[in-house]
Amino acid sequence: MERRNLLRAAVLGGSAAVFGGTLWRGAAYAAPAQPGTGPYGPLGSPDANGIRLPSGFTSRVIARSGQRVSGTSHTWHNAPDGGACFADGTGWIYVSNSEISSTGGAGAVKFSSSGTITGAYRILSNTNRNCAGGATPWNTWLSCEEVSLGYVYETDPWGTNAAIRRDAMGRFNHEAAAADPVRKVIYLTEDESNGRFYRFVPTTWGNLSSGTLQVMVAGSGTSGSFTWANVPDPDGSPTATRSQVSGSKSFNGGEGCHYANDTVWFTTKGDNRVWQLNLTSNTYELAYDDSLVNGTAPLTGVDNITGASSGDLFVAEDGGNMEICVITPDDVVASFLRIDGQSSSEITGPAFSPDGTRLYFSSQRGTTGSSSGGITYEVRGPFRA
């Protein structure tokens, strides 16, 4: 799973996760990542926010559920979940879902070039358990409902245009989305114990109003080749989308999804795995599996995932010991940060600022263990390019 030189340009001049650089060039079916010394060194003592960070990194609280975002009149939503950053002139915007039934939606925080908060507002309201999602190359946020027969909503991070429900992207227990500008598709995960991995092929790239929903077809193993098949009834009724195509591959609890340079990674929480699809060869393999780790697995509760311009993958834990772990291009997995005193929560929404120097994420239930106790953080430091 060699990813050296995978990413060399991150979110510049636009805000979606569209990456350039040299192509993935490792041997197929390499061994999954193993524990080792990470690129940032050991974690230090908890800081004032209860976060253990490597030397040179600092944290600050951006927002708390039920409280006004500093310097604004906007009250931050409960249960903050999936997120992404969007370039905004010299500054940027961080969007965050709300995994609350019936009134979920999504909110946004706007930053100046110095990182000062300049605004906060709602971009989606009155939707259902908005869990994860993904950014598009045309600067919109896809907010996904994690319910049976859930929808995808396309939203405006600037809060100017009304959100649009994208029915053609299928109705199922949506989790995350990742845009692939090369093949002009959107990948989608499904949070079911027998969920599937999908892609949506728009009729016109940049317009999600119509298109074809497809599902991954492959064998039962952890590596091999795959193809795509059309889902006959994307509305999921009367037969669930995951049950419509014979030979479609089952995944145990699809979670985060990330695309870069002809590769898409996605996580499955039911078996603590990170899967890798090599899109030029149409092959798949394991990038990480905690059951295959030599010794103690540093990454458990595998959940949201994002990538840095260095090619490092950052994987957040739902449970585990409340860490974000890094998987390097050399297939080393190590702890990057840990939140102390919040064992009844989960880490959600990891996303880098456009310049790659700040990492945003949330503790969904904070110190209280309740959805009303969510905390959204920023970590700043010498992330490697």
Rank of each mutant, 00 (worst) to 15 (best):
A9N: 15
F251M: 07
I186K: 00
P382N: 06
S101E: 14
Y377V: 13
C131Q: 02
A176K: 03
R358S: 15
P80N: 04
S243G: 07
S248H: 00
N173H: 11
S148R: 08
C144Q: 08
G219E: 05
S291T: 15
S291K: 11
W275I: 13
N139E: 14
T136I: 06
N278M: 13
G341E: 02
K184E: 04
G115P: 07
I117Q: 05
L299K: 09
G254N: 01
T58I: 10
D235F: 13
S209N: 12
K269Y: 02
V217E: 01
N272P: 07
R165P: 07
I327K: 02
A308C: 11
S362R: 02
D330M: 10
S143P: 02
D191R: 01
S223F: 10
R165W: 06
S193Y: 06
T357C: 09
R3G: 12
A308R: 09
G295R: 03
R8V: 11
Y284E: 07
V147E: 00
R3V: 06
P382H: 05
A177K: 02
I347C: 07
R384K: 15
A16D: 12
I324E: 02
I62W: 00
R380V: 14
A163E: 00
V245A: 03
R4T: 14
D331N: 15
H258P: 00
V333W: 00
Y198R: 00
D312E: 10
A218R: 01
T90H: 08
R122P: 10
T368H: 02
S343W: 03
A297C: 13
D180E: 02
E145N: 03
D180Q: 01
L124K: 05
V215G: 05
D330W: 10
E192D: 13
G50W: 01
V333K: 01
S125G: 09
S113Q: 10
G44V: 07
T348L: 09
G256F: 03
P32S: 14
G134A: 05
H74G: 00
R273L: 01
C144I: 04
S125R: 10
G170T: 04
V326S: 04
N49D: 11
T300S: 13
Q342A: 13
V95L: 07
E346V: 13
Y259L: 09
F266C: 09
R196T: 05
N78R: 12
V245H: 01
P35R: 04
S281I: 09
V18W: 01
I123G: 07
E255V: 11
S98T: 13
D330Y: 12
Y259S: 10
S98V: 12
F336D: 02
S291D: 12
G150Y: 02
P137F: 08
S343D: 12
G381L: 03
E378V: 15
N130M: 05
P42F: 04
L299C: 13
K249S: 08
L277M: 15
N321Q: 14
D331R: 15
G236C: 11
L188N: 01
G105V: 13
I117E: 03
I339L: 14
A120V: 14
G26I: 11
R199F: 01
D312V: 09
D340F: 04
T127F: 02
S225C: 08
V95F: 06
E146P: 08
L337D: 03
S343F: 06
S45A: 15
D330T: 14
A316Y: 00
S148T: 14
G134H: 00
S363T: 12
R165Q: 15
T160N: 14
D167K: 10
R242K: 12
T267C: 13
